[in-house]
Amino acid sequence: MKYDMILAGVGGQGVLSIAAAIGLAAVDGGLHLKQSEVHGMSQRGGAVQSHLRLADRPIHSDLISEGQADMLLSLEPMETLRYVPLLAPDGVIVADCTPVLNIPDYPEVDALLVALRQFPRVHLLDATAIAQELRNARASNMVLLGAASLFLPLEASALEAAIAQLFGRKGEAVVGRNIEAFRAGRSVIQPV
């Protein structure tokens, strides 16, 4: 078994927290893991991505080859499209459709959504709005993780345990609110 993921977003959106939760669940489940991160200048509001690879045997490369990613999980619609060359022909896209408008030449959002809907297995959700409805705007990344969890080779309970571990030092209330966001995301979409 191997499962390769690209996590994408804009610096500051919480891409690395998603990666950390999946990583914890995977390692606790005895899987091998390699996960590359972007640190430095791009974290200042630029495009950021993380390659996350899970397998039941040792993994060689820290980076995923073109056309090999099983999932593209993205916190932002335009950032999703930036990494599609890495996606496998039957790869799944799970993406937040709310744009981060921090550049002057951001394209028409509708044009992005049209482009995204061309992909065979794409799930767009408004994770940002769902998180806001839960009065937990910062947890849109956990909403998205919840939606993605339907496809991951990991149990939901293992991911929830990882979220508890990740946010544990911030107290039970924060853990509870993040798990609530995770469950909300998980209930939004149907796997195909």
Partner: peptide, 20 residues
């Protein structure tokens, strides 16, 4: 065997880092 199946659509703009 290692090749991309999807191209980045031309609508995608660059997103350079910037001051917070």
């Amino acid at each position: 065997d290692s090749r991309s199946h999807f191209e980045v659509p031309s609508v995608v703009a660059g997103r350079p880092p910037q001051l917070c």
